[in-house]
Nucleic acid binder design. Structure first.
Lengths: 171, 171
DNA sequence: CTTGTGGAATGCGAAATCCGCAGACTTGAG
DNA sequence: CTCAAGTCTGCGGATTTCGCATTCCACAAG
């Protein structure tokens, strides 16, 4: 089902230091808890506890810790098409000068839903979500190319979304 | 920030027909409800009701409908790095023959977290999530290139994730 | 071996939330 | 006007959440 998947990416990144350092590596139980919540973010703690073999209170503590640590977030994720965004595209960007500053500028744009620095023939990959073609055109041609340091861009307009997941650990 | 954002994409797509057809277009209240749940997927219905001006029961009914219709999902979203996936890459794929069948083959691979058919110099864009370099190499060179119809691939290894969002409507 | 300490799990009421349902309103079709 | 469908509200009863004190456990120190 779902020709248009409910969509969107994940959590907003936190500062580099925090989560990386004390990322004590999750044990099997925490993984199991996460899997439960990936199936249903509102599943009661008691039900999760029964599934993973822990008391309700223990599950609650673990979940709270996972949230505090930024290991996971429990959120509503939507289908862009349903919410009124009809055009999406991936844009590869080539930069001259400081890549990170360009990345920061793109990150500040609300239409840029996903920004990654990459190795390869593009310095940056950016996913854009727009309301219509005009909007998309304006974002790519006027806004992104106007950012100082952007040498060139190449666009890949989405024709059909085939898969979107957030099922780690579940493997 | 975030060199490791909590991560992942969104919901798995549903069949093409369902959601697209009766997607009656959400009214302002439903949008507001979604925004509330994008901030905290476990927020109590009563609190949401107070925020959007509806009774607890009404919010509950609307949320249930949004979930049933596949407009949104409430799920835990995780940071791949924390969960043990250290290498990610975007791969552009060129296809000869039927693009969709190749897309289906890639969709079936658990390491492919995101698969889109695109217009432009790639026919497909695929996001890969792996445990380490060996794993990444094997997925790209052995598995993806082994799919019948795949003419060529180009990889963009992630150096740093700068932004990930799922905040529609919130704009 | 005994003691001490920090982290995590458990048990347990009290408070808050969820859930199903019946009734009231609104709207549009016939 | 009447009927049917779709929503919203109000309301108990069942569940769940929450905070806290207690118990367990593993481990390091004495």
């Amino acid at each position: 089902m779902h020709s248009e998947g409910v969509a969107s990416r994940s959590a907003e990144p936190r500062d580099s230091n925090r989560s990386r350092q004390h990322t004590p590596q999750l044990d099997a139980v925490s993984l199991a808890i996460i899997e439960q919540l990936q199936e249903d973010g509102r599943r009661p703690y008691a039900a999760i506890g029964k599934a993973v073999g822990l008391s309700e209170a223990a599950v609650r503590q673990r979940v709270q810790k996972l949230l505090d640590q930024g290991v996971m977030q429990i959120v509503a994720v939507t289908d862009p098409l349903t919410v009124g965004f009809r055009r999406q595209a991936m844009v590869g960007v080539n930069v001259e000068g400081d890549v990170e500053s360009v990345a920061d500028a793109l990150t500040a744009m609300s239409e840029c839903e996903y920004v990654v620095m990459t190795a390869g023939s593009f310095d940056l990959m950016v996913e854009i979500v727009c309301e219509d073609d005009d909007h998309l055109l304006e974002v790519i041609n006027r806004r992104i190319r106007a950012v100082p340091g952007v040498r060139s861009t190449e666009s890949f307009v989405y024709l059909k979304l085939k898969k979107q997941t957030y099922m780690w650990g579940t493997r």
